[in-house]
Design a protein around this nucleic acid. Sequence first.
DNA 1: TTGTAAGCGTTATCAC
DNA 2: GTGATAACGCTTACAA
Lengths: 346, 346
Amino acid sequence: MGNKRVTSQDVARRAGVSRTTVSLVLNDVRWAQISQMTRHRVLQAAKELGYVPDAAARALASRRSQIIGLLLTRSPRHIASDTFLPQSLYGLIQVVRDHGWRLMIDIIEPQHQRGAYLQMARAKHIDGILLSGPRYDDEALQALEDDGFPTVLMGQLLGSSFYSVDVDNRNAARQAVSHLVNIGHRMIACITNTDLSYTAAFDRLTGYREALEDAAIPYNQVLVRYGDFDLQSGYVQMQSLLADEVLPSAVFVASDAVAMGAMAAIRERGLRIPQDIALVGFDDLPLAQFVDPPLTTIHVPAIELACKASEMLLQLLQGSPPSKKHVILDAHLVVRESCGALMAHG
Amino acid sequence: MGNKRVTSQDVARRAGVSRTTVSLVLNDVRWAQISQMTRHRVLQAAKELGYVPDAAARALASRRSQIIGLLLTRSPRHIASDTFLPQSLYGLIQVVRDHGWRLMIDIIEPQHQRGAYLQMARAKHIDGILLSGPRYDDEALQALEDDGFPTVLMGQLLGSSFYSVDVDNRNAARQAVSHLVNIGHRMIACITNTDLSYTAAFDRLTGYREALEDAAIPYNQVLVRYGDFDLQSGYVQMQSLLADEVLPSAVFVASDAVAMGAMAAIRERGLRIPQDIALVGFDDLPLAQFVDPPLTTIHVPAIELACKASEMLLQLLQGSPPSKKHVILDAHLVVRESCGALMAHG
DNA sequence: TTGTAAGCGTTATCAC
DNA sequence: GTGATAACGCTTACAA
């Protein structure tokens, strides 16, 4: 209808006050004591005119955009099959919106665009960063750290000063593999979720090694394969495992998505799960309980993780830093049917 | 390091030119002919100083934010299990970023926040909207249309003037169901992807009805169930179908995710796919070919759809409206193993 | 080919 | 309690 843009000036005029007052009222500034009457008049006028503050003007003047940047550090093609992402988004958007902020999303490719973090940060497009999937070999992150830009990691980076939320990948993996050991497996292969420059991948593999060590089973590199986030990679790596002379009796796959690819390869080969090969996954995607057989896996509280991370970042941005720098959420084994029961000896 | 913010003024000073020139060079303004030397000096200075234009200031002055809003119209809990979303994001982010824009994401809940579109639009937070999952009962959309706010629908809304990209849901569904008919099924149930206020759900159900009609099979409402996006809903609705006295010999499930829930219910009941019950899905998620049995489904070019939609919106925003208002991409049946071959008669 | 100057719509610092 | 007024950092007519 009204084509001319409604500004705070218009509201001020209509309410018979100054723009300052309008701003004070609309931003609910505490220390500025506004009379109830004035306050009401302003609110009324704003409503009648359908006034919506201009985001850019506000950002420019206040020096904060009220936007949080969600940065995904994976190659774009991995995003497409990232079944974990929707859960994160769910948690994030909820929290961010409830606080009156917005979410901007971008992908940082491992190889290129190293400086992309800083680009968004320095352009003041965003006030803070939520970084998913930190990598050990990410130098640009260092720059963020030096700048002291408000950042919360979804994941972990040992030795960095970033706030972070994560599960204990190492111990969870250890738990998963120990489960396999406990039901009698000794020939246990591993397919990682992705390459080891991702901290989560590295930690999960470490957990695998530790569990073997606990059971005095020698670590055998021949039994390890490297997944690459998606189903296809699980399928291919499992095929590779199945091509060896001697087959593992169980496989720890450090990602449910990769595990589902692996399951397909096992079936295709005419083998049964868990009778011929037992499988443990990691993530507990919503899908995990619906596949055949239902996947025994590590439950990662994806939504909770996202919520916690965004809450921490918002606290940081609102001047009340969270007490804990590193939050570790519980991840635990969920036993379903892909491991079977106790193995027969031999 | 340098703590004071670098402004275009600083760059201008260093390059020995005015701020205007800096702006002209950095924005690559065509008609303003800048000498190669000046141009070079400015670029050099900007680089040396690590200058990054302030997003808010730029937006305020130019009246465009260079941000595209991706609005998802589903209830937040559906987002969590939306395995389609990652593919869309993949396409979107690619295109948007390649054009130098950014992506802001938000969820519009079916019930609340009707005005949320306008909020973001009027705040000029975003220059254009990409709307995923339009619904027939969405009144707020009308306001957008009246405002003439640049919008592209991922999906369709018959009778609206919005630009849109979609597949032909009706015909694809018809194709899927006809396939079942052709291999001998007559008792064909349907589980929708979600409730019928979503245009895609409505159209797919219509396609189902049409295929039955083509085969002179009466439409039987008893055989229809309503899914709700996620696996769980497929599981529950399939159970409901299996609880009837007489079982269908095939089910058309209008979403792969829902179909996977259905598969679990069928297995749990001790029935085999496709021998006892044949299944056709819709979407062709990356997962579809890896489940057991591999799912026969309608392939929807998700990434292409997202790319196309964002390209159209960008064209719109850059003043060169796409020639076609409504783009329909090809969706076709992919035959895998969840339907089996020709049925035995009887 | 480049510079001057007037906005853009807020917020924030003072006075009153 | 409320109102001037100066930033905020950039774009863009218009002038030179």
